[in-house]
Design a protein around this nucleic acid. Structure first.
Length: 424
RNA sequence: GGAGGAGUACGGUAGCCCGGUAACCGGCCCGCCUGCUAAGCGGGUGGACGGGUGAUGAGCCCGUCUCGCGGGUUCGAAUCCCGCCUCCUCCGCCA
């Protein structure tokens, strides 16, 4: 959520932010208009309440006729207040709904552009492998190795579901363990999060006025939904808390399954592990001081790069343009890893700075020293290992002519020292 | 799922039955006293929002809200009534 006071001070900045995302800047002026109405009502009601409070202090001392008269007078005043209050309440909820529906303000360094073609490649690492045979995709490889079963997954749960089997399960766990070890070594605190959360937690993290049921699975008859990523419960971890500035940054490694409806993406990436309804992810999350959130962002991307490089996977870092930015984010880097089966670089990691957007909704502040006012923290999140997508890259880049796959050496300790997966 | 209890400012608590300016202790800040420190003595002490005056965020002044959250009753609610959330105890069920 954006800061209303900042919008009042510099509306043009926020209009141009919306334009950068390819959106209509109109809501900024709509918000200012409702806010003017709201403040006028508020001033009026506060004046009346001040009268009421004065009377309230006098009445206990009054006796007989004076007392009756004063109470009668206040009856009228109370009725007037009661009359005005609904108008104020509706202005407030209108304003709140509008503010909640607005996306985050993009960072100045975010490039202009309406879709992913305007994203900027920041750096590239590694060289895509050259095969002297026709490479297979991960579905063919995984099925041949007996570690992935999409057919049975579909029978049990429908498309975009799969069974993972044998060494596939070990491979997934190995990636998760490797990611956790990296984070623990960096001083992150691991958190196994709730995978069902209140819908306010999801909108708080991802934006929007109401729950986006295109992407989120809602539990019937309860105000609970399956998380789309542990970023959501991680953003709620310190909700309604005031943190000590000296404790920042607070860094967490979220460990969870993630669930996505993908209702709007019928027909897109239907094959394989790339876009599935359920996947495992190790997620980084930082609560940072606003003055240091930019460097924190670079640090988190750096860890993602270290992770992919340790696996020896060719990749590039991309800075997303305004039109490609998620609702709640001010700036996002994606890591796109080379996937021979898709014939190009595809997203395996994302790393974002949400600024104060999530913190304002979650009520997470910090205080500098014992006194003084509080301020909202900045929150940042980044994928360290989305195991499904990492497995795509590992299988497809490590494949050999006979359908076997050479595994990255770093995984050996987690794979019972296997260095290779063989069909059969 | 059933029964009972609790939630008060930074921390700990009183007030609630029986409606009328949120109190007390600690902490913290300022001052006094004192070779130093501590004790002792005196004073002060939050947050959110709206307005005024400064220079659109300092400071100062006025006001509203803030006793878990949201409603209701009332001239007036921490206090009475209703709904919800969280925690605790017991019972039931369960891996």
């Amino acid at each position: 959520m954006l800061d209303l006071r900042q919008i009042r001070e510099d509306p043009e900045r926020f209009r141009s932010g919306l334009r950068k995302r390819g959106r209509d800047p109109g809501p900024v002026d709509a918000a200012l208009e409702i806010d003017r109405r709201r403040r006028a009502l508020l001033a009026e009601i506060e004046r009346l309440r001040a009268d009421q409070n004065r009377a309230s202090a006098e009445i206990p001392a009054l006796k007989g006729k004076d007392r009756e008269a004063r109470i009668a007078e206040m009856k009228v005043l109370a009725a007037r207040i009661k009359d005005l209050e609904p108008h104020l309440a509706s202005a407030e909820s209108e304003l709140d709904g509008l503010l909640r529906s607005l996306p985050n303000h993009p960072d100045e360094t975010v490039p202009e552009g309406t879709d992913s073609s305007a994203n900027v490649v920041v750096r590239t690492w590694g060289t895509p492998p050259a095969f002297d045979f026709t490479p297979r995709d991960h579905v063919e490889l995984g099925t041949g190795l007996g570690i992935l079963d999409f057919e049975r997954g579909a029978r049990a749960s429908g498309s975009r579901f799969y069974y993972m089997r044998g060494d596939g399960v070990l491979l997934e766990t190995a990636l998760a363990r490797m990611a956790m070890d990296l984070l623990v070594g960096e001083g992150f605190t691991l958190l196994g999060t709730p995978m069902l959360v209140r819908s306010g937690v999801i909108t708080g993290a991802w934006g929007g006025a109401t729950l986006d049921t295109q992407q989120t699975y809602k539990v019937e008859d309860e105000d609970l939904a399956l998380i789309g990523t542990s970023e959501q419960p991680l953003a709620a971890y310190h909700m309604d808390e005031t943190l000590d500035a000296a404790a920042l940054p607070l860094r967490y490694g979220g460990v969870s399954w993630c669930f996505r409806r993908e209702a709007g993406s019928h027909g897109r990436d239907v094959r394989g592990l790339y876009r599935v309804h359920q996947f495992f992810k190790i997620e980084m999350f930082s609560y940072a001081h606003p003055d240091r959130s930019r460097e924190e962002h670079e640090y988190l991307v750096g860890l993602e790069e270290r992770f992919v490089q340790a696996l020896g996977l060719p990749h590039r870092v991309v800075l997303l343009c305004g039109g490609d930015l998620g609702l709640g984010m001010a700036k996002t880097y994606d890591i796109e890893t080379w996937m021979p089966g898709r014939g190009g670089y595809s997203e395996t990691h994302s790393c974002s700075n949400a600024g104060a957007f999530q913190a304002r909704r979650m009520g997470t502040r910090f205080r500098e020293g014992a006194r003084g006012g509080s301020e909202y923290v900045h929150t940042l999140n980044g994928t360290l290992a989305a195991t499904g997508r990492a497995i795509i890259a590992i299988l497809e880049n490590g494949q050999q002519a006979d359908g076997s796959v050479r595994l990255p050496e770093v995984l050996a300790p987690y794979m019972r020292w296997q260095t290779e997966l063989r069909p059969g």
